[in-house]
Structure formats: structure tokens, C-alpha cells
Amino acid sequence: MDAKDVTEVAAHCSAFLDGVVEADWAAVVPGLGWSAAGTVAHVCDCLLWYSTDLAAGPVELRSVEVGVRADSPPADLVRTLEAAASVLASVVATVPEGARGWHPWGVADAAGFAAMACDEMLVHTHDAGRGLGVAFEPPAEYAAKVLARLFPEAPTDRDPVETLLWANGRVPLGELPVRTDWRWHGAPPGS
């Protein structure tokens, strides 16, 4: 995955979220325990962390604090998502070929960070929509790309959107129960 994927997924998620800014973003996402606003703020935090981690290289950088305020107006959170995705896309596009960044589950290359960012945006926009009582359908094209990159163990003969939600512990997938251990078990992205 690449910078273009990050910006396109961000645009899709932002368009959905922008359409529901008048809803009650204090509403709690069922099964997650975060508000819709807190969920979107978390996504923004992740994108900013991924930008910093990839730019800083393969050793954990502990001197930076990232924190998007969940009590911000919803329209500001949508703009923050767009801005954070733009920052990450810029880093993904400009790091030297073969560059790797630190992540708690292992160092990843630029394509791995792009995939993790797309996963965060797609799944958590779906979560925020559930909290707001409005369905968000992640684009199948991007769900399939994220699955191929981050979840190679996931079934490939199913709907990619349902499979992405299953891979992230959100829904059962046919006879497969809801995943309770959704931590990625493959090699670190880009290894």
C-alpha cells in the first residue's frame, strides 16, 4: 500500500464523517467503550504516531507525545483526520526506499505503515458509525488491500469488508466466531 491509498481512504472516511457532524459524537460505540469522538481522535493519534515512527526509523522514539483532543468539535476532528492522513501520506511518499519505522509489534516499511493506517481509518470509521447509528461500509477495494498486507491468514474466499471487520475482532465470519485475539500474528509488515 502507498501514500495514495492513505489519502484516498482518508477522503472516503472523512466524507462519511463530515456527513454526520451534527450527530451526538458523545455516543458510545457498542462493544468498544469509546465515544464516536474518542474513536476518531484515536485514529488521528495513530496516523500521527505512524508518521513520527516511520520518519524516526526503527528505534522507538519516546520523546514525542501525540494527543488529539476528543472533546474537539466533530468538524474539527474530521479536519484533523484529513490533516493527519496527509502528513502520513507525505512521510510514506518521501522516506528512502527500504526505510523502516518502529512499531510495538515490529518494525515496518512505508507500505506497512500505509496499510496499518488504512486499517485504522476503515475499521474505526465503521466503529464511529455504529456509535452514531449510521452504517459505514468500508470500500471493498481497500479492505482487500489491507487484508492482503496485514492479515495474510484471513480467508480470501469471503466478502473483503466482512473479512476485514472479522480480522479486527468486530464480527463473526460465517462459521468463524468473532476474533478475540486480533493481534496480527504474521511477520512484521514489510519484513
Rank of each mutant, 00 (worst) to 15 (best):
M1K: 12
K4V: 13
V6C: 09
E8V: 11
V9F: 07
C13D: 05
S14I: 11
S14N: 10
G19C: 03
G19E: 01
V21Q: 12
E22Q: 13
A23K: 15
A23P: 09
D24G: 04
W25S: 01
A26D: 04
A27F: 06
V29Y: 07
L32F: 07
G33W: 05
G33K: 04
G33R: 07
W34H: 07
W34I: 01
W34D: 04
A37K: 05
A37D: 03
G38L: 01
G38I: 02
T39G: 05
H42L: 10
V43S: 03
V43G: 03
V43H: 06
C44P: 00
C44R: 13
D45M: 01
D45Y: 04
C46T: 06
T52H: 14
D53N: 13
D53G: 06
L54W: 08
A56S: 15
G57W: 13
G57P: 12
L61A: 15
R62K: 15
S63F: 12
E65G: 07
E65I: 03
V66P: 08
G67T: 14
S72H: 11
D76E: 14
L81G: 00
A84D: 08
A84L: 00
S86N: 07
S90H: 12
V91N: 00
T94D: 12
V95C: 06
V95F: 02
E97G: 12
G98C: 05
A99F: 10
R100D: 07
G101F: 02
W102C: 02
P104Y: 14
G106E: 05
V107A: 12
V107M: 06
V107T: 13
A108I: 00
D109S: 04
D109W: 02
A110K: 04
F113A: 01
A114Y: 01
A115K: 03
M116S: 02
M116E: 02
M121D: 08
L122S: 04
V123M: 12
H126W: 15
D127L: 04
A128W: 01
G129Q: 02
R130M: 14
G133K: 02
V134W: 05
E137H: 13
E137I: 01
P138R: 01
P139L: 06
P139W: 00
E141G: 05
E141A: 10
Y142V: 00
K145T: 02
K145W: 00
R149H: 14
R149D: 11
F151M: 08
E153W: 12
P155A: 14
T156P: 05
R158E: 15
V161E: 05
T163Y: 13
L164S: 11
A167S: 14
R170F: 09
L173Q: 05
E175V: 12
E175M: 10
E175G: 13
P177F: 03
V178C: 08
V178S: 06
T180H: 15
D181M: 09
H185Q: 15
G186D: 06
G186K: 10
S191A: 15
S191G: 13
